[in-house]
Design a protein around this nucleic acid. Structure first.
Lengths: 225, 225
DNA sequence: GTCTATAGTCGGATAGAC
DNA sequence: GTCTATCCGACTATAGAC
């Protein structure tokens, strides 16, 4: 190993702990997860958790920040573009519509299809259901931006829609996506799904987008709400 | 207390434990909830939990059964009627549509507006995210019936829809409702809601039904999926 | 910086009096 | 059937060697 090597592929104890923490916290939740499991999965000693992260809670918060940064890396520019699209002089309805469909489709792919979703998405969903101190990070850097982006596009598509109504509608649309992660076990039993496989992910995305399009069309044909 | 007295209004220790269990398990989840909290809230001794329910786990399962029976009391006949409506000779589209809207609207009212929802709905949502041994009860007596009812109505409304597609669509529609319970904290911050108040519940129900109607209309105007 | 050993705390279950 | 007292196990965190 020459010293000139720029990035070492060898992962540090700290990084391995973070990865393991996302895994175990995502699977079991904060209370049910134990530092023993995490340390074992990371292949490090339990004592390194208080050493690096000031204890279980600190590790949890670090893990939340870690996944939020992953999500920003994945969706950040798309969200940025959508914000700009809406503030433009002449908001293009067709562009808004396709941006909305791209975002929702991307979230479906991530939520349902991504191999890391079962850990990452579950941590976020748990924080929705049981907000901890780490919720602020998720809210400000992910949830608020996503909901606001969708809501903004809806106001472009539907001129007289109030911001409040647009946000409630944005939440409802997100619900159509997240339910497939929250209710994965129910889906497996109801439909007899396996994974989700690529085919199943595609079918779900197609259906969600179809519903969304129907909703938008019908809203456009009505007085604003 | 004469022996002839039929039903005692005085709640038994067992019943009080069940009520307290729904409260505490709903609030904190199985792991984070402690038998000490539950016993204290019920005003009974901790030792009565192993005595009556064979321990924490048994109490949890009994609490699940308890809320499932509450839900059946509330929605059972409606679900029954919907099953019959769909198997009739001449499935009435208008009736199916209004039945669907009634069911979804009722679920919104229960999920968002009912004072007992924050405990009951949260226990069910937790089981969706982290199925335990008790999940079977919830699945067979609640989830499967609800999803199947919605899916059946969708096939009435949309003749060539496959059962599989109908179920996926039913899940998506349920997601529009449940998201307001899962993401309550996000809603509070995004919209500045309080409770939910009666007004907020009404607005959410109105919006969800509007979306659903739009989805159905657009599906009716397309080739089946 | 990483380990072993252990301290300190807490939660669930049990024994046995009443 | 309900209580008190207590045990046992599991978990997090710390001390200190290396």
């Amino acid at each position: 190993m020459a010293k000139t090597q720029i990035t070492k592929p060898k992962s540090t104890a700290k990084d391995r702990l973070l990865e393991a923490a996302v895994d175990v916290f995502g699977k079991y939740g904060f209370e049910a997860a134990t530092t023993r499991m995490i340390a074992k999965k990371a292949g490090v000693n339990i004592a390194s958790i208080p050493y690096y992260f000031n204890g279980k809670e600190g590790l949890y918060q670090a893990a939340i920040t870690y996944i939020v940064e992953k999500i920003e890396a994945k969706f950040g520019t798309a969200l940025q573009n959508m914000a700009e699209l809406a503030t433009g002089e002449n908001p293009n309805r067709e562009a808004a519509r396709s941006a909305l469909e791209n975002l929702l489709g991307g979230i479906v792919s991530f939520m349902v299809g991504s191999p890391e979703a079962p850990r990452v998405a579950r941590m976020i969903l748990r924080e929705q259901l049981d907000p901890s101190a780490a919720y602020d990070i998720i809210y400000s850097r992910v949830m608020a931006r996503v909901i606001d982006s969708i809501a903004t596009l809806l106001t472009v598509l539907m001129e007289n829609m109030s911001p409040r109504s647009a946000r409630i509608r944005a939440m409802a649309m997100m619900g159509q996506v997240t339910v497939f992660r929250v209710g994965r076990e129910t889906m497996v039993r109801m439909i007899g799904l396996e994974g989700y496989t690529q085919e199943e992910t595609d079918e779900i995305r197609r259906i969600v987008l179809e519903h969304t399009r129907g909703t938008i069309e019908s809203l456009s044909a009505r007085p604003a709400g």
